[in-house]
Simulated scan of single mutants.
Amino acid sequence: MPISPNQGSTGGGTPVTITGTNLSDTSAVTFGSKPATSVTNVSPTEVTAVSPSGTGTVGVTVTTPGGTSNPLSFFYVGAPFKSSLGTTSGPLAGGNTITINGTGLSTATSVSFGGVTATPTVNSDSSLSVAVPAGAAAGPVAVSVTTAGGTNNGLSYTYVDIPDIGTISPTSGPASGGTAVTITGTNLDSTDSVTFGGTAAPFSVINATTLSAVTPPGTAGPVDVVVTNPAGSDTEVGAFTYVAGPGI
């Protein structure tokens, strides 16, 4: 006489189906010493019930006018605890795989990003991997994990849109570097690198539309300026020109 599923939340409320024979006129289903919160006799071979609260492993029995069945094992599982996201931001288009760390994750069936669900790959009881679904808009969303033990919330993931460079000022400076440059545009608040001619420049994020950078040394002539964030990069071709110093 199998039971499906054979595990559920310690808080109870898990619907289970018990199949077997001679189940007509079932009067009770018991989980350990506790009666099920709801019992439905579907047919002579099937009974459905809702588990009460409990802990550990308990025996589930069915009682009919003919007696009480042998017990079936049912495992109570605690709600998951999530301690961290391996990556806390990514592209609005989704598709990147992140790791979620915590405990009680071995029975995870879904991960929700702002209400959009994805199916995870369980690595262990303390780790799972999931491909992030596409987001509706740039910004933070709540992340929740659902397991046989329930759903746990409390983590946040930020969707990031690709940066877009608008203007660069000034557009030229000495090849020795050191020119303070202001870059304006959109989606700049999650910038993680700025390069001039492929060389990384020190920068500061002012706000979502403004960056401040200092040019590194370069070779005389125009170079590309590239702004990158977790969603991707935007390139302004030949947007800054290095000017050679005078020679005597």
Rank of each mutant, 00 (worst) to 15 (best):
T109R: 14
S126V: 13
G78R: 13
A49C: 12
A175Y: 09
A79D: 06
I206L: 06
T37W: 00
F113A: 02
A138Q: 09
T48S: 12
G94W: 01
G115L: 11
F74E: 00
T14K: 05
S69F: 08
V141G: 04
N187P: 05
P163L: 09
I168K: 03
T235Y: 01
F81N: 14
T119D: 10
I18H: 12
A28E: 14
G197N: 06
N41P: 03
T191S: 08
Q7W: 11
P2R: 12
S69M: 07
S172T: 11
S169L: 13
S9Q: 00
S129Q: 15
S84I: 00
S126P: 08
G11I: 00
P44E: 10
G67C: 04
V60Y: 02
T30E: 03
S127Q: 15
S4Y: 12
I206A: 06
P80G: 09
T215A: 11
V130P: 04
T57I: 07
F203T: 02
S84V: 02
T182G: 04
P216F: 06
S204C: 06
F31M: 10
T63Q: 11
V143A: 07
S144M: 09
A175G: 15
S129I: 03
T167Q: 14
L155E: 10
I183Y: 03
G8A: 04
S156V: 14
P80I: 00
D125F: 07
D25I: 09
A220L: 01
T61F: 00
D125N: 15
G13A: 01
I168V: 06
V29S: 08
S126D: 10
P5A: 05
P2I: 14
L85S: 03
P133T: 08
V214Y: 03
N207G: 03
A137L: 15
V160E: 04
P35A: 07
T55C: 07
L105S: 10
G104T: 04
V16M: 06
T30I: 09
S127N: 12
V141F: 01
S172L: 09
V243A: 11
V214C: 08
T171Q: 14
N101Q: 13
F203H: 03
F75E: 12
T26L: 07
T97D: 11
T195P: 08
T219Y: 06
A134N: 06
M1K: 10
P2Q: 15
P202T: 03
P217S: 12
V62Q: 05
T215Q: 04
T26S: 12
I18N: 11
S33V: 08
T184W: 04
T228S: 14
N123R: 14
L85Q: 04
T61A: 11
S126I: 14
M1L: 15
I98F: 00
V111L: 09
L211I: 02
S112G: 09
T26M: 01
A239G: 15
G95T: 09
A131V: 15
S190E: 06
L211Q: 01
V111H: 03
N70R: 13
Y76S: 01
G56T: 01
T146F: 07
G221Y: 05
G245H: 05
P174G: 11
E46G: 06
A108R: 04
V58C: 01
T103S: 13
D161N: 15
V29M: 07
D189Q: 13
T63P: 02
I100K: 09
T30L: 01
S124L: 12
T19M: 13
E46Y: 10
A208P: 00
